[in-house]
């Protein structure tokens, strides 16, 4: 009795700081944002508390729908590329001797030690018209390519920025895998590919899903990379939301767009949880 009470007290003490933080700084602002979606834009900024459904009507405007669909596409392509590049990387790291494993993992998170914006700028220096890549091509007599300010550059930047978030959960999943399972599979006559398909991959699906989600979510809402590497010539949901809040003074519509973004991500999270449980 007293022991269980002690445990409950302990739980209370340990959970309170984190929960308070979440409720005050996450849930309350989120509730505010959600409440704005049904009100009107204030002429001088802010919100006029008069009910309207107009924000949701605007949401289905083909223009904004196209932006949402376009962002989904870019985020999906980014995730697939990051997965294809990240899986072999994670797999190899997991096979390394302990010392090299640590070095490899540090190398993976190393880019996070530099500011995100600076790393994106580095891509501009690489890809721009008079940039490093084109100067290199010039040596071989190849005409300068238009590498920057298009969707390809956006995807390249997103993959680069979020690849570590794919590798780390994959590494965790692959490393946990009991090597004896693969040995057993080989002993029973399965080829390397079959072992991978039938043993390794199915057992690392949760890692694949977590990594994919970690890459997809920030890619979907990103607004810095489309602006810097895409030259603002294509718009993503993040840009749209930023525009509404910072330059259009349209908080209600910005909130509605944010709600749409959250809804898409919630669906994905639920799907991930569902698949992961079945895997």
């Amino acid at each position: 009795m007293s022991r269980s009470r002690g445990r409950r007290l302990g739980a209370f003490v340990f959970l309170t700081p984190g929960l308070t933080y979440l409720v005050v700084l996450l849930l309350v602002p989120l509730a505010l944002v959600l409440s704005y979606t049904v009100f009107q834009r204030g002429r001088f900024g802010g919100v006029v508390y008069e009910f309207t459904a107009e924000n949701f009507e605007r949401l289905v405007d083909p223009l904004y729908l196209d932006v949402v669909i376009g962002s989904l596409k870019i985020a999906a392509v980014t995730t697939v590329i990051a997965l294809l590049a990240g899986y072999p990387t994670a797999y190899l790291i997991a096979q390394l001797p302990r010392k090299w494993k640590t070095i490899a993992l540090v190398a993976i998170v190393l880019p996070f030690w530099t500011n995100f914006i600076i790393r994106v700028y580095a891509w501009i220096i690489l890809l721009s018209g008079p940039g490093l890549v084109n100067s290199g091509l010039k040596v071989f007599g190849i005409e300068p390519l238009e590498l920057l300010y298009n969707e390809g550059a956006i995807v390249a930047g997103l993959v680069y920025s979020y690849l570590p978030l794919m590798v780390l959960p994959l590494f965790a999943a692959i490393e946990k895998l009991d090597p004896q399972l693969r040995e057993a599979s080989a002993n029973l006559g399965a080829s390397g590919l079959t072992t991978f398909r039938k043993v390794t991959l199915p057992l690392t699906v949760p890692g694949v899903l977590t990594g994919s989600l970690f890459v997809f979510v920030p890619s979907f809402g990103n607004f810095v990379i489309p602006e810097l590497l895409g030259g603002s010539k294509s718009l993503m949901v993040g840009n749209l939301i930023r525009q509404q809040f910072l330059s259009a003074r349209d908080w209600p519509f910005g909130s509605t767009l944010a709600l749409a973004l959250i809804a898409v991500l919630l669906v994905l999270l639920v799907a991930q949880a569902w698949v992961a449980r079945r895997a």
């Binding site: 834009r41 002429r43 223009l63 932006v67 376009g70 718009l235 525009q243």
Partner: peptide, 19 residues
């Protein structure tokens, strides 16, 4: 100068042209 409610037309224009 501010266009009041009509200023959303310009926001839409920016989004439209960029998208």
């Amino acid at each position: 100068i501010d266009l009041g409610a009509a200023s959303t037309k310009y926001t839409r224009l920016s989004a439209d042209v960029q998208a």
